[in-house]
Design a protein around this nucleic acid. Sequence first.
RNA 1: GUGAGCGUAGCUCAGUUGGUUAGAGCACCGCGUUGUGGUCGCGGGGGUCGGGGGUUCGAAUCCCCUCGCUCACCCCA
Length: 445
Amino acid sequence: MKFQAPKGTRDFYPAEMARRSYILDAWRRVSQRNGFEQVDGPIFESLDLYKVKSGDGIVSELFHFEDRGGRELALRPEFTPTLARMVAAQANALPKPIKWFSTPNLCRAERPQRGRLREFSQWNVDILGLDDSVTDAECIFTAVDLMSELGLTPKHVRVKISHRQTVRNILAKLGVTDADMPAAFNLLDRMDRLPREEVLTEASRIGLDELAVRMFQEFGKDKYPCDQDGVIAAIRSKLVLDRGDPSVVDFETLGTELETFGIADWCEYDLSIVRGLAYYTGTVFEIHEASGAERAMAGGGRYDGLIKMFGGPATPAVGFGMGDVVLMNVLADKGLLPDSEKVSPRPDVFVIEVTGYTTKSLKIVSSLRKQGVHARFSYKTTRNLGKQLKEAAACCARYALIVDERIIEQDVAGLKNLSTGEQSDVSVKEEHMDDLAARLGHREP
RNA sequence: GUGAGCGUAGCUCAGUUGGUUAGAGCACCGCGUUGUGGUCGCGGGGGUCGGGGGUUCGAAUCCCCUCGCUCACCCCA
């Protein structure tokens, strides 16, 4: 019997794990400097939790099972329901605004393809309890901060921003009824990928006449930079909305905030961004690879109604999720995913023993380790110095400590800097191990 | 769920119209030079040719099924 990892899952051998940690560490570092606190929940939840938000249709898309008590459970396909449940349960006790992040593993019973697996990690960042658009901007800033942290630039990726309410109002002006609104959003989402005639057919089905279809297509395909005066006005004139329309004011304010945060050059308005049909109420955004080659790297927006849906008090909220799969694809394509050696823990010292005093050298190893030094040694039987130096170099050790017969008479050993090749003698007397550990433990930037 | 293209060693691949015990490079492990680095030499482990069935005297090679991978569609929280 030969076993292999289940379809759509990954094994992380040390080299892959080092790269994965590189991403997860960046997520945590960026979250924390933006003022977010880490949370987590169970990896499985009651199946109903997901039905509440997404309807019964979601069940076929997730891994679900029954426990021995007949309870219906599901592996989490997303984190937001858990977050909503947690916030709803203690809404009154939590200081506002709530700024939380998490990096859960999620499972979806989908067919794997490029950028999409059955198990993946996702970075979730949310701000709850404030409806100020500065929090929308702060979420986008945090996402951009991460991109920047990993070496990406506005040339590599674009933040595409839309506004649910603005789009809804435009569609209403064009003649779409409330009943047809979901279909209209769905069409808007797919418009880029559909042939023109099909767009026309579907548009007429939801009550859009010839002129309306043209306008519909027009605003769906145009992209506007966020950093120029008057763009909002340009959009507004095209989009037949009144100057005082609250959603436009809101949208406009966000643009100003993005400029204030200094990230307007990463962003553009793109009203074809829809984000499914779910629970978004205001700002929505996605981050894409600039050429549009990959699927979305991140997506999010404002969801002011969700906490109430989960039994909590009405709580405004904004947030986004970013998966590791597309992110790593994009980084790899741009040559920005470091080699595993560059992001793997590097030994401070490799203790080499050439004369047979194994006990002495092992004592040095354990003494250094007790003081926090990353120390390794060879398990080979050979005493050959060249071979052991090669092994030390292969694991990228900073120093080699060469223990020879002088350990007996003088308590000294050779310390060789493996990047410069310089070598000098150091004392390995018991009372001097502190000094040696301090010297070896000092990490160059 | 639908469709297409791929499955030979850990990795990249060779393997003639079906023909003896299925190969190479890299990687891994060991040994060698009585003491200074990714060399070099020698040796070693590792493959039921994804799995099952069929055709045939004979299948890595031809046919069917199945599993997996990759890509696209559906969907995308």
